[in-house]
Each structure stands twice: as C-alpha cells, then as structure tokens.
C-alpha cells in the first residue's frame, strides 16, 4: 500500500556535477518498497514547481526505515530539491507503480543502466543478490562523472562493464554497443534496463533478436502518479497507450516499441 508520508531528510549532497543523492527517513515507504517502484516527491514548498516529481528508489534500508534517491538536476523541481537541508521534512507519496519482477528460477541477469537510470537497478541488484542471483552490470553515461557510485556497484556486480560517450572511462560509446558485443557470446536469463527511451528501445530490438526476455523502466511526465489523470501515457509496440505510473514504470521489453525507422 502506498502512503503520503513526511519524513526527515538525513542527507542531501552533490555526488558529481548535476548528480545528487538524498536520504530520507520514511519507514512506511521503505517497508513496502520493491525495486523499480518510484516515489512522487514534493520538491519545493510554493506554487512553482506545482506538481510532484517522480524518482526511482535507489536504495532502501527497511530496518532503518530509510530510502535513498539519486537525482539529476534538470529543471525547477530537481533544483528546488537540492535546496532541502538535512533535518527538514520531505513530503513523499509512495511506493508507486509496478516494479521489476524477479521470476523464480532465474540464475543470471543483466542490468543495463543509462545515466541516472542506474538508480532503480541498484536496489534491484541488492535484492537479487540477497536471493542468490548473479548480476552482470552494464552502465553508460555521457562522461566519466556520470558513472555514479562505482564502488557500490563493484560490491554487487559479478561483472561490471562501463561505457562513456566521450571515452573518459570504460568503453568509448553507448552502453548498448557494449551489451551488443557481449550478447554475441553470452546470454542472460533476462535483461533489466533503465535509462533514456532510446536506450530501452534499442535494447528491446537487441533482446528480441537474441531471444532474451527482459524489462525496461520507462519515463514520462507525471501529474497524479496514481493513475487518475491519464497524463503519463506512453505508446507501446502494439500501438496502445499505457500509464507509466500505474501500468509501469516497468514494462516487458517485448512491449517496448523498437527503434524508429527514421532519424
């Protein structure tokens, strides 16, 4: 069950460049949260930003009743969030949406994250490791500074492959190139992805060609976050609209529309 919970901010700090991390004490959200679910956050106090902003759960400590979010400063909402001080309250709705299913019987899974999209995958990796799964992890970013929390990732990944578009760390290029290469000789039980839509769409095509199933967490602008306003619709491969907040944010890769033909 989701709740509206106001919890104390424990820490809110810049990780690198535009990337921040906030930790909040929210026992009710923490106890119910599953990997891939999101919280809907009131980032400011006034009328601008007016709406909440959705963020994936990056890490959850159920015993301590704490959640952590990693966020990239993009505009009004995320900028307002950087101004919040430890000790202040954060107003959060959640956990919301349907997370990543971890079907029983899986042995080895691949996690593919683009930029700040790695956030829900870390929570997933922790849960997967706890239930004895092996995770190979592929992370991509524009530049080295965007490869966040590498030390944490090393702790959960059986194999960690990195890519940057400018070549400042790991493979030079996009993370999907890396996945494509490894997919030639190797095959996971399933792929779990979160990143820009283009990344998920390309993965959908690659996974289908390799006969691998998987899941991708998609993004959309949201108002209500609970399925009431019909604002966050995305078009799936079969042409139908689905709500990211209620039917997702995690969808089967098979449902994700492949790469468009044109540019």
């Amino acid at each position: 069950m989701a709740t509206l919970e106001k919890g104390e901010i424990i820490a809110n700090r810049c990780l690198a460049g535009p990337y921040w991390e906030i930790a909040v004490r929210l026992p009710q959200v923490a106890v119910a949260a599953r990997p891939g679910q999101f919280v809907h956050v009131r980032c400011g106090a006034g009328l601008w930003p007016l709406l909440r902003r959705p963020f994936s759960l990056f890490a959850v400590d159920r015993e301590a009743g704490e959640i952590r979010l990693v966020y990239q400063v993009k505009g009004t909402g995320t900028l307002a969030l950087t101004k919040k001080q430890p000790g202040e309250e954060l107003d959060v709705m959640g956990p919301l949406g349907l997370g990543f299913p971890l079907e029983p019987g899986l042995r080895k899974i691949w996690l593919v994250g683009g930029g700040v999209g790695m956030a829900p995958l870390y929570f997933l990796a922790r849960e997967a490791a706890a239930s004895g799964l092996t995770c190979d992890v592929f992370l991509g970013a524009v530049t080295a500074a965007g490869l966040l929390h590498q030390e944490l990732w090393r702790g959960v990944a059986a194999r960690l492959e990195l890519a940057t578009e400018d070549g400042t760390a790991g493979h030079k290029g996009v993370v999907t190139d890396l996945v494509e290469t490894v997919l030639r000789g190797n095959r996971p039980a399933a792929i779990y992805a979160c990143g820009p839509l283009g990344m998920s769409r390309r993965l959908a095509v690659m996974a289908a060609a390799a006969g691998v199933t998987g899941y991708a967490s998609l993004e959309s602008r949201m108002a209500c976050g609970v399925g009431a306003c019909q604002g966050c619709a995305v078009r799936l491969k079969d042409g139908s609209y689905r709500l990211v907040c209620r039917d997702g944010p995690v969808f089967r890769l098979e449902e994700v529309e492949g790469e468009p033909d044109g540019p």
């Binding site: 601008w48 709406l51 602008r221 019909q230 604002g231 966050c232 078009r235």
Partner: peptide, 22 residues
C-alpha cells in the same frame, strides 16, 4: 485512448494538459 503524449506541461503555477478525454 486519448491524445498522443506528451500530455502534460507545467507552467508557472499552472498545468497545461491535453489528455483528450482518455
């Protein structure tokens, strides 16, 4: 089924929607 996304755009103290009676 409603209008093609994006269906929401936030403006100062406002929200512009084009849900299309989905």
């Amino acid at each position: 089924e409603g209008n093609p996304p994006p269906r929401l755009a936030e403006t100062p103290a406002g929200l512009v929607n084009s849900i299309g009676l989905a």
